[in-house]
């Protein structure tokens, strides 16, 4: 493991992404510093999942570049530093898999070919299961767990690789409140340990107190980049500015070392009868 450099954990500069020829993300500039807890927010179809998938290389950029720990994505190979938690697949695979086996797959970033699991590997898998509170379900088939528990299995899988930078795609979607709380406790522990977390969320719920920066996407562009927002503020065109009605966001909303706020360049999207929208 290399020494943590002062720079950024992950950054995208001028990122454009097209899916099937349709431009989905345009001109995205995002930088995430070490130890940050960033929530990518926005309505359905705003491109937040596309963005997180582009950051880990699952969606190709049509312009711009992504850097992980300062290295361009194309030449990046230290995948053991990255933990990815995809959106929970609705369908389980055709053959049963136990909780332990799925979590053990997260260890592959650090295992060499054709070698059995080492004692360190087993300890990391056990610890990941403990952290998400599923140690007693390790022998159960994943398909027998509830949706929230399955989500916790996917997080444990990312944890098992002991990464420093986590990407979570909608970890709270379709998860009941007790499971969301376990999720929040897990992420709080990771934050405490100094991990960098980039999280896609439609609604934060119990995760809200952990978030120290929010990026809101609207129609494939960054509409807000600044301190954490509460859930309802995300969907208001003026974000957290209800009382002051600033016409321009001042630079102090930009966290140190982050991209400039782009809110001023976003087309106004409120409908004509949107009462408060007229205030801008």
């Amino acid at each position: 493991m290399t020494t943590p450099q002062p720079g950024t954990a992950v950054s995208m500069r001028g990122g454009n992404v097209s899916l099937g020829g349709r431009p989905v993300l345009r001109g995205i500039d995002v930088e995430v510093g070490h130890g940050a807890f960033l929530a990518l927010m926005g309505a359905n179809g705003s491109g937040k999942s596309t963005l997180v998938r582009a950051l880990v290389g699952l969606n190709a950029l049509t312009a711009g570049e992504v850097r992980l720990f300062g290295t361009p994505l194309a030449s990046y190979d230290a995948w053991e530093r990255i933990g990815f938690v995809p959106q929970r697949a609705t369908a389980t695979s055709g053959v049963p898999a136990s909780v332990w086996e799925v979590v053990a797959a997260g260890r592959l970033t650090r295992r060499r070919l054709l070698r059995p699991l080492s004692r360190t590997d087993r300890a990391a898998i056990d610890e990941a299961l403990e952290v998400v509170g599923l140690a007693d379900r390790r022998r159960d088939a994943v398909s027998n767990l509830s949706g929230g528990q399955q989500q916790r299995v996917l997080i444990a899988r990312a944890l098992a690789g002991q990464p420093e930078l986590f990407f979570l795609d909608e970890p709270t979607a379709g998860v009941d409140l007790p499971n969301q709380q376990v999720l929040a406790d897990t992420l709080a522990l990771l934050k405490e340990r100094g991990a960098t977390i980039v999280l896609v969320a439609h609604e934060l719920g119990p995760l809200a107190p952990l978030v120290d920066r929010a990026v809101v996407l609207r129609d494939g562009r960054v509409a807000y980049d600044g301190p954490a927002l509460r859930d309802h503020e995300v969907h208001q065109p003026w974000f957290a500015e209800t009382h002051t009605h600033h016409h321009h966001h001042e630079p102090h909303h930009t966290a140190p070392g982050t991209a400039p706020v782009q809110v001023d360049h976003v087309p106004h999207v409120a409908s004509p009868i949107d009462r408060n929208g007229g205030a801008r």
């Binding site: 880990v56 898999a97 797959a105």
Partner: peptide, 22 residues
């Protein structure tokens, strides 16, 4: 049998496997 962990991970979740560097 030898590559079972890798083959399992790829078959179980291709996207996770890609981000894991497989």
């Amino acid at each position: 049998v030898g590559l079972a962990p890798q083959l399992f991970a790829v078959a179980q979740d291709q996207e996770f496997a890609r981000v894991a560097g497989l």
